[in-house]
Amino acid sequence: MTENMDHIDDWSEIDDTLLDTGGADSVPPAAKSWLADQRYMHGLLRSMHLADSESREARIEAIFAGAKPAPAMRSGFVAAAALLACAIVGFIFPGYLLPSNLPEAQAAVMRATKLLGEEVDRRFILTVSLTNSEDREVMREEMELTTRPGMRILMVGQGVGVVRTGALRAGCDGSEAWILGGPFNMKRAMPLAQAAVLVANLGSVLDLGYLDLHALLERLPKALELQTIGREVLAANHELLHISAAGALPQTLGAAAKSPAGVSKLDLWVDEATGMVMRIVADTVTQVGFHSRVAFEYLDTVQLEATAYKRPW
């Protein structure tokens, strides 16, 4: 930062913000930093005293009145926008029903719910992928998700694949949701109760509440039809119980979000030996016409400070 006090006597005259008319045609190179400092404060002080919320809204409306034709976007931008929504707010479920309702499936989900309800930090790999109408994958994003019951979530990731979004951290400490980095280096925080506004702004595709996996599983037996598909061997030769779930699941963030896109398929894989849900996969169709798959793969437990879920600034 320039020591700008020293030069007022030297360069006072070139500060044309204090002249009623006219101004300088050029300034000495050495004075430019000093002049920029003065202009910076001049702009801030004017802005501070010329501010009012009504005219601000009018300015924003005027911009959008003039911004009618959509720009020719690279598919990557649209995908990144959809990804951002996915990364922030999870996913939501539609009204599909499968025919059978087996007690085995209900019991497995309830046991997994009890485990996830423990006051423990659990790590998952959250993968969001998008395919276009030609069934070509246009984006794949992988993030590390840590959750603890009570709407405490932390996501850390780096864009990969077709779309690179840059480092992204997002989370919620139970009362405030926040996001830092990602496309456009966003830095936003808001009370959880108001996060529906963000969901609506981002296209109403998703629902933040479902990243609290304990709360998600807790709702399943009440809201959805559960069906055992069978036992399958996934990674590490481990046999898991495959359960499909379908049905209408209430939104967690109130009515501010518009109608979300539907999930066409939701599956869970539960380890019968430990009771832990090892994998959750949801297939959705986003509002921009992409097919989206959101998958959670359980990793392990970790021990985080309570402050880890709070916004880092």
């Binding site: 802005s47 501010a51 601000r56 300015r59 924003i60 911009i63 959008f64 911004a67 959509a70 720009p71 976007m73 931008f77 649209v78 926008a81 959809a82 951002l84 929504a85 496309p183 456009f184 966003m186 936003r188 702004n201 981002l202 296209g203 595709v205 986003t286 509002q287 921009v288």
Partner: peptide, 17 residues
Amino acid sequence: MDSRDLFEILVRAHIDS
């Protein structure tokens, strides 16, 4: 998701600056 929704967030975040 449409680009206009995201652009509105950016406008609101940067218009005062």
